[in-house]
């Protein structure tokens, strides 16, 4: 299950995930497995104890993870954010702009969509943000 970042594929870090209901008892440096229907405001109380939040993508057409990531960032989460499950290379940039740092896919998918397809997929900012960044506006 390779991890994909801006530099390409990296091996699976096989990190142990903490389920949401175990969060209150978990210590520092937690990697949280966040369900899509989680109450994000409640999770926000624990942000300083989290190193990583993993958000599932059950199917690439299910875009809830994008909004969940945006909301976590909007609530002030500054740690690492990972999307895991089914995303396609064409969604990599979307994931990054929504606040994800990395994407994890299955080995089967990595075989069908090897590293070069992920690195060559568009990274361009959407035009709305390009205008902003370039100072055009």
């Amino acid at each position: 299950m390779p991890l994909i970042t801006d530099t390409g594929f990296a091996p699976d870090d096989a990190i142990t995930l903490t389920p949401l209901d175990a969060l209150p008892e978990a210590g520092e440096g937690v990697a949280l497995d966040l369900p899509l229907d989680a109450d994000t405001e409640a999770v926000a109380a624990y942000f300083n104890r989290l190193d990583l939040i993993v958000i599932p993508f059950p199917n690439f057409g299910d875009g809830r993870g994008f909004s969940l990531a945006k909301r976590l960032r909007s609530l002030g989460y500054r740690g690492r954010l990972r999307a895991t499950g089914h995303l396609i290379p064409d969604q990599y940039a979307f994931a990054r702009f929504c606040g994800f740092d990395e994407v994890q896919i299955t080995d089967e998918q990595a075989e069908r969509q090897p590293e070069n397809q992920w690195t060559s997929a568009t990274r361009a900012l959407p035009p709305f943000l390009r205008r902003r960044v370039s100072g055009w506006v």
Binding site: D62, F66, P127, F128
Partner: peptide, 13 residues
Amino acid sequence: RQWSTAHPEFAFL
């Protein structure tokens, strides 16, 4: 239109 074009969060509603 500008805001919604290729909006990264809302392409898979």
